[in-house]
Simulated scan of single mutants.
Amino acid sequence: MKLNARHLTVDLYNCKNSQLTDIDLIKKTLKSSLSQNGASLIGLCCEQVEDDHHALMGILEEGHISLQVYSDLKYVAMDIFLCKEDAQPEAISKAMRSFFKPDKTKTTLLKRGDFTTLKEIKPKVKTHVAPLRKIHNTGAKVIRILAHRNNK
């Protein structure tokens, strides 16, 4: 099986849309954006985490989408994960950006599920020796202190 998944993370800063607290409108816009861009929504849940923080999670046939909406900060964090070769998470992101109207955005695209390089991946081995030295040094100090006390 070939899997070319794309994971787009988007930070939306200083959103100008005054309707950041209208979760029903955000859900409606999200559903419309997904539908217009060929994503099949299976389920959508929304939880109010704090007074100014809502978490939305959409399960798609192709992957998932999540939004963390912080109305007081005028900030939205969005993750779009799509598992199709012709996936276009950027199109969904663009539609949501036009709704939220941020001053600045930061996007990161990760390509996931690349099995061709799996043989080239080597495990990282990290050895940290400093604690052993500290134990040795502490032991030596204790011996010196005890020897000093015995010499008195």
Rank of each mutant, 00 (worst) to 15 (best):
M1S: 14
K2L: 06
K2H: 06
N4I: 09
T9K: 10
T9D: 04
Y13F: 07
Y13G: 02
N14P: 00
L20K: 01
T21H: 07
I23L: 03
L25G: 06
I26F: 05
K27Y: 01
K27Q: 13
S33P: 09
S35V: 04
Q36V: 12
N37C: 01
S40C: 00
L44Y: 00
L44I: 03
C45F: 07
C46D: 05
C46V: 06
V49T: 06
V49D: 03
E50N: 13
D52G: 06
D52Q: 12
H53Q: 09
H54D: 08
E61D: 14
G63S: 10
I65W: 04
L67F: 02
L67A: 04
L67R: 00
V69R: 08
K74C: 04
K74Q: 15
K74M: 04
Y75R: 15
D79C: 02
D79Y: 02
F81Y: 15
L82S: 08
L82R: 06
L82V: 06
Q88D: 15
P89S: 14
E90A: 13
A91T: 11
A91W: 07
I92F: 06
S93P: 09
K94Y: 15
F100E: 08
D103C: 08
T105C: 10
T105L: 11
K106I: 08
G113E: 09
F115P: 03
K119Y: 11
I121C: 10
K126W: 11
K126G: 10
T127N: 13
H128P: 01
I135T: 13
H136K: 11
G139K: 02
A140S: 12
I143G: 00
I145A: 07
A147Q: 14
H148W: 04
K152N: 07
